[in-house]
């Protein structure tokens, strides 16, 4: 089963070149039932990545380009009275899909953002007082622009907490870029990819993630990381228990990707940055990433006293 995942990752790497780490993280995020926030400039291959993921995991895929005039109904859907059948008919919005690429989410108004984020959290949409479950699996890849431009509404911190991970793809390396330039259109290539896993298999993998063993010592390590983020004076505010749960879940998914049935401290360390960087704000000048590195270095992996 994990080999199928491995094949899927290899397949995606063939399309999104030189970003294997990010692809693995994106897959781990999917397996951990989280949502992914990609912070990047346009044209870095976000859409290609989302598309390729949807193809290899045979997920139903929609893309929504967020704009400032968007309303919640444009995402969630709306009930329309059909004069022919003389009945109200629900027209489900683009959110009713398995993989949603929410492009430039920070261009939408907070209200619209809130509607999507609520749907992400609840995994259901309530229209006219009737709750409709979203399809399973439900995976949102949201992107946002790092450069604050006019007419953007940055996501509030409480909303950012809803994303399990935040990653950025970044510019490709020189070789990758050459390969990229000399090859055919990546997005076209993504469209023709073959599925590697069925939805049912994917769901099974997701169940498997929960069964990955996290020993008492490992949980202790995670807790000490959380504790230090709160008491260490590195951040304005420490990590929430939800962040801790997310960290552990992401580490489990990462362990599964590595083909193990237990979590090791490496797993935690790998996912620590992606899981926590959007939830923390360094208190002393430097970048959040540097503070997270400090956090990592301050906490011994195995208790010493």
């Amino acid at each position: 089963m994990t080999t199928a995942i491995g094949r899927a990752i290899t397949a995606v790497s063939g399309v999104v070149l030189g970003k294997e780490e990010q692809i693995r993280l994106a897959v781990a995020c999917l397996l951990a039932r989280g949502h992914l926030l990609i912070e990047d400039l346009p044209g870095m291959g976000k859409t290609t990545l989302a598309h390729a993921l949807a193809r290899v995991f045979s997920l139903e895929y929609r893309r929504v380009q967020f704009t400032s005039d968007m309303l919640p109904a444009d995402i969630l859907g709306v009930s329309i009275f059909d004069p022919d059948s003389r009945e109200f008919q629900l027209r489900p919005g683009p959110v009713f899909t398995q993989l949603l690429l929410a492009d430039e989410i920070n261009r939408a108004t907070p209200k619209t953002q809130g509607a999507l984020l609520e749907a992400m959290e609840e995994r259901q949409v309530t229209l006219d007082g009737v709750s409709r479950p979203l399809p399973e699996p439900f995976y949102v890849i949201a992107t946002q622009n790092p450069v604050t431009q006019a007419g953007t509404f940055p996501l509030p911190e409480s909303q950012l907490d809803r994303f399990l991970m935040r990653i950025s793809l970044g510019y490709p390396s020189a070789e990758t870029e050459i390969a990229l330039l000399s090859g055919s259109d990546r997005r076209q290539q993504a469209l023709t990819m073959k599925p590697q896993l069925s939805t049912a298999e994917l769901m099974q993998m997701m169940l498997l993630v929960e069964k990955i063993h996290a020993s008492a010592d490992l949980i202790d390590y995670v807790q000490r990381l959380l504790g230090y983020s709160r008491d260490g004076g590195l951040f304005v505010a420490g990590l929430s228990p939800r962040a801790g749960l997310g960290l552990l879940r992401a580490a489990r998914a990462w362990a599964l990707l590595a083909g193990r049935d237990y979590v090791t401290p490496e797993d935690v360390q790998v996912v620590l940055g992606p899981v926590t960087s959007h939830r923390l704000q360094g208190s002393a000048g430097g970048t959040t990433a540097a503070s997270i590195q400090q956090l990592l270095e301050a906490v011994p992996v195995v208790r010493r006293s």
């Binding site: 090791t264 401290p265 490496e266 360390q269 990592l296 270095e297 301050a298 906490v299 011994p300 992996v301 195995v302 010493r304």
Partner: peptide, 9 residues
């Protein structure tokens, strides 16, 4: 080895 390095490393 620094304390934050995982045992495997």
């Amino acid at each position: 080895p620094p304390a934050h390095l995982p045992p495997a490393q």
